[in-house]
Design a protein around this nucleic acid. Structure first.
Lengths: 218, 218
DNA sequence: TAGATTGTTAATCGATTAACAATC
DNA sequence: TAGATTGTTAATCGATTAACAATC
């Protein structure tokens, strides 16, 4: 049922993955798919797929399965790909550069409208056509342009100041690339991309794997 | 007990976070901490902290708590920060550039020893002192230099070819920045960084938040 | 010793999987 | 109609939280 009951984060985090797989199916010109077939492609159980989708509504048809295009559209709608968010990128370093140049965010409804930095040689330039302004002037820009999301790629030491200021200026979402964990009040949504954490987990799992390989060889 | 029973991924993914918080405590010159105090800082339950740590051994002391430095050392050891992995970076685009310039991976024991690309204007140059070689020659390099990890920042269309080749050349871990989900055999460890997925989840949660805000205002 | 806090077992909660009646 | 496959309920599994005896 498409009720209003709270959807669990576990389900939400799987939605973009469904979205990607369905897009692939469309490109392969596959028109319909059963939870069974999809489960084999995605390597999750058919049960989970049906449970997940039924959090949002009955998108399938008994005896038939799911129409690929309409399921894709539905999940896109749930993820809100048609709405647009205005984003400000903080930090014009290497990661900031990479994100500013990444076309894909546009397609997903995220417009990076400004980049803030404090380095004199960067302020006044543009990256991928996006103007780089001095961070001192963020408040008036964020408020007047109604920026929804701050993308943070600033050094750790700058984090407390920057986060406090963007939140005060009305930003509601933060995409955080710094290792700092943000402690913010209610009503601010934070999504972390902790690259070092991810790499360390890879390292742990790799060591574990190598230990297993060694044990098997014995 | 420091047994050999399989540690769950949920626990492993929390380890880098403990590691970061303990490092912060060291810098604050805090010598000991109880699970209660740490739980308040990290916003998780004290019970969970004690359960997590006890997967690996009894690091604390009744009536005292945990010694910050030695707990930091223990978790570092579990995460294997002292071992070194040899990494090859594929793709000298914006993301590749950002990763090549990121000092922090070195500190965590990951050495990027080579960058592979196919663009004539990039091959033969160096990024952050790391040589950019043509991707055609990857096999001999990967094998002779015993590369452990491939960091993939290549376009989607190049993924099937590149992954097949790095695995064949003996790479055991993949840090994947492309939206492609890798389907690999047993024994290859893959850690994904799906930036678009993360951003879409942020978008979903933000819409949800805005709906709640609107409901509250009524 | 008394107080504090761990290590660990038991209880609870939530997420995943299995089963099957409903229905296309 | 018969076969297929969903939507949904029930069972299982695993992770989190609570409780408390052990012990510093």
């Amino acid at each position: 049922m498409a009720g209003d009951k709270k959807i669990s984060m576990a389900v939400i985090r799987r939605l973009p993955r469904y979205f990607r797989y369905l897009y692939d199916l469309i490109r392969l010109d596959i028109r319909r798919i059963s939870s069974k077939e999809l489960s084999e492609r995605m390597d999750i159980t058919a049960s989970q797929i049906r449970q997940d989708l039924n959090c949002f509504g009955g998108f399938g048809q008994q005896g038939y399965g799911y129409n690929v295009q309409s399921l894709y559209d539905e999940i896109g709608r749930i993820l809100g790909v048609e709405r647009r968010f205005s984003c400000a990128l903080f930090g014009a370093g290497n990661m900031g550069n990479a994100l500013a140049n990444y076309e894909n965010f546009q397609n997903r409804g995220f417009d990076i409208t400004v980049i803030f930095d404090s380095a004199a040689d960067k302020v006044g330039t543009a990256i991928h056509g996006i103007p780089v302004l001095h961070v001192d002037g963020m408040e008036s820009f964020l408020k007047s342009k109604h920026v929804d999301i701050a993308i943070l790629t600033v050094p750790n030491r700058a984090m407390p100041d920057i986060t406090a200021r963007v939140v005060k200026a009305g930003v509601k979402g933060i995409w955080n690339f710094s290792p700092t964990d943000l402690k913010l009040g209610e009503g601010i949504v934070v999504e972390n991309v902790h690259l070092s954490d991810s790499l360390m987990v890879l390292g742990y799992r790799l060591m574990e794997q190598l230990r297993e390989d060694a044990a098997r060889r014995k």
